[in-house]
Nucleic acid binder design. Structure first.
Lengths: 205, 205
DNA sequence: CTGTGTGAAGGCTTTCACAGCC
DNA sequence: GGCTGTGAAAGCCTTCACACAG
């Protein structure tokens, strides 16, 4: 009876979540699959199929309750309560992400940053402390951190990944241009900016 | 005879490209599908199928020539010659990307940045000039820019997208948390950091 | 014998068509 | 009538099995 949710469906839930939050801000309390799908850039049937994995959430002839659906998706994604996250590698990109407000708004909090050069100062504007790598294992264990963001040069990414995985990290958002080898119980999402540009480059020819 | 290349294959080409460049740096001139696949994090058969779309590039019993394959993929992706790119929205994330060296290394050059607040100063360290939005249309046309990176707040992204598409932009790398509506001859790749984290959050439950 | 190229099979996602409920 | 839920069909991508070349 336990059906597995397709990975792509999980990804789209985030899009729906974002659209629903906008609807909520506009005091709209009911939405049809057609309207929500359009706002999220998908087809109505796909949206219905995605939502159907989690039970009968809609009302036939009427649509979906915005509040209830938001709550449900939040639960499914596990963002209903604030997730603590650490960031490793405080270079250009890392500093920017520390200042980037988008995470906190969506249920994530960067609670600490780490860097190989421990003398790295906290980027101005950021409220997050930057530590040396020495105590990272202890930090992860004590605070039960599960998610790490890696904004490191490619040649040290694997080494650092090994370290944090051993300390208990279960998920990595990897910005380094490297394919990380991790145990299969650890999830890695890669964000490869150069690859995205190359992809665009191909399609405009 | 003209077969269409799967979108996912195009994306993986970037991974192969990256791996090949490392091999080249190490003066390795031949590589098997097994070795290259492992370095790129895919299965050997998939790699062979991907490469077969572009002709018989390998030698049976031997493997692929690193130089020739690198050249071929560069041509296919359209990164053989330097692509000029503009960046719009010089906030935290935009500034970081201006300083981020990863693009230039892979055949892209950010030739100019634009911001709605035209008094925005150039981020320290960056060599790229920041302009107001006034002359952006002219700039795009005169320099034949095809790719734009959007690092803007979600609520202005659509408006700016309309503007640049009208001026001739054909591809957008969108960091704004918004679904952009564009003509179908324009390609959009979304990088949604919050969505990536939510995705991870789901899989560690 | 080693390692690529490729039709066929298999698996996963999306789309369709329509039944079911308000 | 309006709109959701869902089995079936279609489409797409990955994996397999093996032919073929060096």
């Amino acid at each position: 009876m336990k059906v597995t949710i397709p990975r792509k469906t999980v990804y789209r839930l985030s899009l729906y979540y974002r659209s629903l939050q906008r609807l909520r801000a506009n005091r709209i309390d009911t939405v049809s699959s057609a309207a929500l799908a359009k706002a999220s850039g998908v087809k109505p049937t796909q949206l219905r199929k995605d939502l159907a994995y989690f039970g009968q959430l809609g009302v036939r002839g009427l649509g979906y309750g915005v509040d209830a659906l938001t709550k449900k998706i939040g639960e499914v994604l596990g963002t209903a309560c604030l997730q603590p996250v650490i960031l490793i590698g405080v270079g250009q990109l890392g500093s920017a992400l520390l200042n980037y407000g988008g995470f906190a708004r969506q249920g994530f909090e960067v609670v600490a940053a780490f860097d190989l050069q421990h003398k790295k100062v906290r980027p101005k504007g950021a409220t997050v402390k930057v530590y040396s790598m020495d105590g990272i294992g202890e930090f992860i264990r004590k605070k039960s951190i599960k998610i790490a963001i890696l904004t490191l040069p490619g040649h040290v990414a694997q080494e650092v990944a090994n370290l944090v995985v051993e300390s208990g990290i279960q998920a990595i958002l990897n910005f380094a241009p490297a394919i990380l080898q991790v145990p299969e119980n650890v999830v890695v999402n890669n964000v490869d900016l150069a690859a995205e540009l190359e992809n665009l480059s191909y399609f405009i020819q």
